[in-house]
Amino acid sequence: MDLARRFDVTPSAMAPPDEERHPAPAGKRRKSRAGLAFIAPFGALFALVFIVPILYAAYLSLFQDKLVGGTTFVGFANYGKLFRDPQFWDGVGRVVRFTLVQVPIMLFFSMALALALDSMRVHGTRFMRATIFLPYAVPAIVSTLMWGFLLGVKYGLFGSLNRALGTDIDPFAPGTTLISIGLMVTWAFTGFNMLIFYAALKAVPRELYEAAAIDGANEFQVVRAIKLPALRGSLVVTIIFSIIGTFQMFNEPQILPTMVAGSGVTTFYTPNLYAYNLAFTGSQQGYAAALALVMAAITIAVAYAVQIRGLRNASHQ
């Protein structure tokens, strides 16, 4: 869930690009060279830290590393093997299922909280905002350890709850571990998404509310007709970030097995974890690189599908 942190999301980032408002006249094309010079610093850095590593990974993925015989060129054999690898698809299936359930729930909470804060009917808005956002600032490693203790059945809080109620629920059994991870992720990222929604709501012009008040709209109608449509753009962004984040899930399944027995977390629990284990304990760097690239392609495809669909719907408004 780390990628989202690299993006600085502000309402202005969601505004339509300037070019649409001021299309450049065809005659001014000549000047584009000066433009190139301006983007060169960014371009160089982008190539260095983004394009080059990807190309290098693509290059690596064409080789097989063997303990005996060293590294050999194998063409696309790693990709062929990957598509037939049940462990890889097991991991992909898991993050897809996870995304389908966890993301809607988390975004629902985020949106509800943003609307509540924006309603001006709660006291201590600033305090609430900071508090809800706070879990995002807790490193995933720390939060996993913390939740591990909270949900532990032997000595944790959950154990006491079980004893008090006479139940026998284990949050870290193979069937329930994913739900527990969902809880951790939701806890950590609800505040982050709420902030995006809240920023979008703050950008709504006050005149719209005044007009609504003059028309005699009640609070519910204001939410439906003004606030929810205003959130559509940021909803697309939050969905994309969440998909990218969950597809990259790593910290939680990496740490849990050291804390609890029988959590059902395998070395291929998520695609990222699998890639890590392939590269660092199986010394199969080529195969791991192929996996990483395929995962990137899947993530980009899904994110684009969401974006295109989201934007088309938005333009229908």
Binding site: Y155, V260, G262
Partner: peptide, 13 residues
């Protein structure tokens, strides 16, 4: 005991 994994907090306790 198949519920407690070595080196975990539970194991310490």
């Amino acid at each position: 005991n198949t519920k407690i994994t070595g080196w975990s907090d539970d194991w310490n306790r």
